[in-house]
Design a protein around this nucleic acid. Structure first.
Lengths: 348, 348
DNA sequence: CGGTTTGTTGTAAACGTTTCCAGCTGCTGG
DNA sequence: CCAGCAGCTGGAAACGTTTACAACAAACCG
């Protein structure tokens, strides 16, 4: 037998002396005579029968599996998403397939195309960048997709986005309110959507606060602890009194570099991060950070996807794509306590 | 059509004017006449054909999917494992199914049983506790399983374990060498395997160092940042000069509680953690920690599983179960710098 | 008591592949 | 000129389910 000796509906039928149709019916809780049910149940139990999910999937065209593709499972932001998604999908009876794209665009496209192989019923994709090929692949996707990230208008796909413009602005405004006037910015790569948006938020907030934009106070680097430390070295000559970092890892690296130089946080320089990951709480002093709602976004994305799946084959035409934005939330901790000589302005 | 309008091998056959058998052969790179190949290839491309993985799985009895079940994806240790496993499986052409058991034993058993549904070709299980039911389920599992954790002898299953006894001992010995004499211990639940082993390592090392075992210096709690902070409050009256924590999260919570009370680290009290997660590096001062090799274990487990999968149906009898132990590694950071008055013994 | 209903059952088709087998074509070698 | 052979090809079975359909028995009603 090509099967691993695994019992099937056929073996049960033989043992119980009924047809495979009856076995299937009994096992799926449909009507049958008293003793038929009894016999089938017992045979199944004795053989230790477990229905073959693959065969079932083939029959009814669904796998009860969902795929989540993100750039890097090492990043706490994505871990938070995985966690939230997993909670939702598990409750709904779906399994979760994890795919790490290593932030490679081709990999993201491959995942999108592989939706066609019917391995999973739907996909949550977290692209690092959106190219024309992405848009093309998204519009022609073989199954429901939800994108976590910002999509251009007109792409017929549900999406969940973070408001990192507003989030950055909140952080900068907070630093300003607590008396900081030379607010430096350590950003990630500016050619990614998040990088661009955070930059936008930073500039907007500076203007709103009436502060000048000083190029010497801005560093672009990649996301990572070491990069944060390196950036500090470049920024210190510009004499900042606050550091806003596009990410907690950068903030942490920066904070360590400062402390190692004897700079006091927050007395000399305030430090704020972004994402409010476990690292922010873990740092010393604990880091003020902007929570962009990774958990919320993950949960919301999963809900949208499940919703698509359920309203499938309903009235015919699919409902229009929905976009949901998770509001940012500023979490103030010790790393941005006001300077003693600051005007503790509570007004906007 | 019950299918979503998705092209199949049949549509290609029709369009190319050949039989489905020929399509299958061409697509699988078997011999065919020049123009048959040509026609099939073109038809497939024009229709945007993607092979249905479910049908294929049903046919040849393998899904090219692997399952990893762990207690909590929020824990950095498991994230490290996921990452390592993902890297290996991806390279081997397998997808990774993630399952979070929330540390619930029934959930672990359910995963084990669900191996029979043929959803995945193999399972890596990270159980929090091993009950008799686990052993029963493991021995009768419907497919290859690798356990990350310690298994009693005689269970016919590959396993990868951490040497947390030795790891704990290393940490305690290190603290002793750097001049500490009242070494407190914040442990996780003692009824889990890791909890028990860490306790064992702690006691063994104390004895080896000639230090007395003082109950007032030991706290059992659950793994979590807040628990670490709470434990410190209970320990301080016992006047420890070092804190060994069963996990980085505990260590971090403890460190924060100490710093908040004005206790200096490492001058007044040294702090060491375990797991060497990102948190250890992130803390201030950076935390000494024992790396139990989460990555290594994950990678090794994946390799063992893949190996089982390949040597399947070979000579007949399966090779005996293998057990691999990841050696612990002490990572010394600032949080355990020697006290100034310490005998900086480098011997042993 | 015959016709209709109701409930239970079995046969067979279908899902989309892969693959065994047999048949066909066109050669080659005798 | 024909046997044999190689290369291609198509038909059909198989993987393990679910389910439409038909068959059949028993029970009911008039």
């Amino acid at each position: 037998m090509p099967n691993g000796g695994q019992p099937t509906i056929v073996s049960i039928a033989a043992r119980a002396g009924v047809s495979i149709a009856s076995v299937s019916r009994v096992l799926n809780g449909q009507g049958a005579r008293r003793d038929t049910v009894e016999r089938v149940r017992r045979a199944a139990a004795e053989l230790g029968y477990v229905p073959n999910a693959v065969a079932r999937s083939l029959k009814d065209g669904r796998t009860r599996q969902l795929t989540f593709a993100m750039p890097d499972i090492g990043n706490p932001v994505y871990v938070a998403m995985v966690r939230a998604i997993q909670a939702v999908t598990k409750a709904a009876g779906y399994r979760l397939l994890l795919h790490s794209t290593d932030a490679v665009a081709e990999d993201e496209l491959a995942v999108l195309h592989s939706l066609g192989d019917r391995t999973s019923d739907g996909l949550i994709l977290c692209p690092i960048r959106i190219t024309d090929e992405h848009i093309e692949a998204l519009t022609t996707a073989a199954g429901p997709v939800v994108v976590i990230g910002s999509l251009p208008d007109g792409v017929p796909v549900d999406s969940v986005r973070a408001d990192s413009v507003a989030g950055s602005a909140m952080a900068v405004a907070h630093l300003f309110r607590t008396g900081r006037r030379r607010i430096a910015f350590i950003n990630g790569p500016s050619d990614t959507v998040p990088g661009h948006n955070r930059d936008l938020g930073y500039r907007t907030a500076l203007t709103a606060c009436g502060l000048p934009h000083d190029e010497a106070l801005v560093v672009h680097t990649d996301f990572g602890i070491d990069s944060g430390a390196a950036a500090v070295r470049r920024l210190l000559p510009a004499r900042p009194d606050a550091l806003f970092c596009a990410n907690d890892q950068l903030a942490l690296g920066a904070a360590h570099a400062l402390l190692a130089r004897g700079v006091r946080i927050p007395e000399d320089i305030a430090v704020a991060g972004m994402d409010d990951s476990a690292l922010a709480q873990a740092g010393w002093p604990p880091l003020t950070s902007v929570d962009l709602g990774s958990s919320t976004r993950g949960r919301r994305a999963a809900e949208l996807l499940l919703d698509r799946l359920e309203t499938r084959g309903g009235t015919g035409t699919a409902p229009p794509p929905r976009t949901s934005t998770a509001p940012p939330r500023l979490v103030v901790r010790a790393s941005t306590a006001p300077t003693t000589d600051s005007p503790i302005t509570r007004t906007a």
